[in-house]
Simulated assay, not measured.
Amino acid sequence: MTGLFDLTGKTAVVTGASSGLGADAALAYAQSGADVALLARRVDKLNQVKEEIEKTGRRAVALACDVTEEGSVKGAVEEVLKEFGHIDILLNNAGVAVRGGVDSMSEEDWDRSFNTNVKGIFFMSKYIVPQMKERGYGKIVNIASVNAVIADKNDMFIRHSYNASKSAVLGLTKGMACSYARYGITVNAVGPALFETEMTAGTLFKSEQFLQGYSAMNPAGRPGKKGELNGTVLYLSSDASSYVQGQFIVVDGGGAIV
């Protein structure tokens, strides 16, 4: 059974790989046998992740890439193909969570959410899917959010552009899944709830009151821990999920069922 999750000989591309869930997933890919291309805007942070991956004996490359800029994405994908020759796995992890409701946020903040969370997936897929189709194989995992399907009245969690953009990720996932299944490409989405990352450490995790309220409402009684998203990501990135298509798996301790 362990062979189902073996990624030996595979190349994975991870966006938003400089920290948090992206960095964790990149290391998990390497530990499962894959070579990894690390993409983000902060190359200094990427190089730290690259060093950790190389300690596993796998190859890694760190590339500056802004997923909101088509030229930047195109250039990064070309570099990955030059380095590794092929791309088997794409983890669209880059994302932003902008606070605010529609009655208070700026157009700029609204656009920033959609440009990163949705257009970023579009650009990455645009330049990676063609070679997956040509090779007849590919695994695309889009990181959405539990907030694609639930919302929160707590002022700290009002993020309307985040709700809307992550819901759009689910629609895009379904459309791509239906279109590309015939080419041996699976496309699925993952919906994490609250995890402590660089993005949340300085905001949500600084409020003891919020954490107590969150934990009281969540069936698991706590936020997600480092590494707890990796199993789901590896499953959808491996041949263990060869007949899983267009699905959305929520990793939230049961919060969405309350």
Rank of each mutant, 00 (worst) to 15 (best):
T8I: 00
G9H: 03
T11K: 02
V13K: 12
V14I: 14
G16W: 01
A17H: 00
G22I: 03
D24P: 13
D24Y: 01
A25P: 12
A28C: 07
Y29P: 12
A30G: 06
A30Y: 01
A30P: 10
S32K: 09
A34Y: 01
D35H: 11
A37V: 04
L39T: 01
R41C: 06
R42T: 06
V43C: 09
D44R: 11
Q48W: 00
I53R: 06
E54T: 05
K55F: 02
G57L: 08
R58E: 00
R59T: 04
A60Q: 12
A60G: 14
E69A: 15
E69Q: 10
E70K: 05
G71T: 13
V73M: 06
E78L: 09
V80D: 10
E83H: 08
F84G: 11
I87S: 06
D88R: 15
L90S: 07
N92R: 05
A94F: 02
G95N: 00
V96A: 06
A97N: 03
V98H: 01
V98D: 11
G100A: 14
G101Q: 10
V102R: 02
V102F: 05
S104Y: 02
E108C: 07
E108N: 12
S113T: 07
S113N: 12
N115M: 07
I121D: 02
F122C: 01
F122A: 00
M124N: 09
Y127D: 07
P130Q: 02
Q131L: 14
R135C: 04
G136W: 06
I140V: 08
I143K: 12
S145K: 10
N147G: 00
V149Y: 03
K153T: 11
D155N: 06
M156Q: 11
F157T: 13
H160V: 14
Y162V: 11
K166P: 00
A168I: 03
V169T: 03
L170T: 05
L170K: 03
T173V: 07
T173M: 07
G175E: 09
M176G: 08
A177T: 10
S179Y: 15
Y180L: 09
Y183M: 01
I185H: 02
T186A: 15
V187W: 13
A189S: 15
G191F: 11
P192L: 09
L194Q: 03
T197C: 05
M199Q: 13
T200C: 15
A201Y: 00
A201V: 05
T203Q: 15
L204W: 01
K206W: 00
K206L: 08
S207A: 07
Q209C: 04
L211M: 15
G213L: 10
G213Q: 14
Y214T: 03
M217S: 07
N218K: 06
P219K: 01
P219V: 04
R222S: 03
G224I: 02
G224Q: 02
K226A: 11
N230P: 09
G231S: 15
L234V: 08
Y235N: 12
S237C: 07
S238D: 06
Y243N: 15
V244Q: 12
V244K: 04
V244H: 09
Q247Y: 09
I249H: 09
D252R: 03
G254N: 07
G255C: 14
G255M: 10
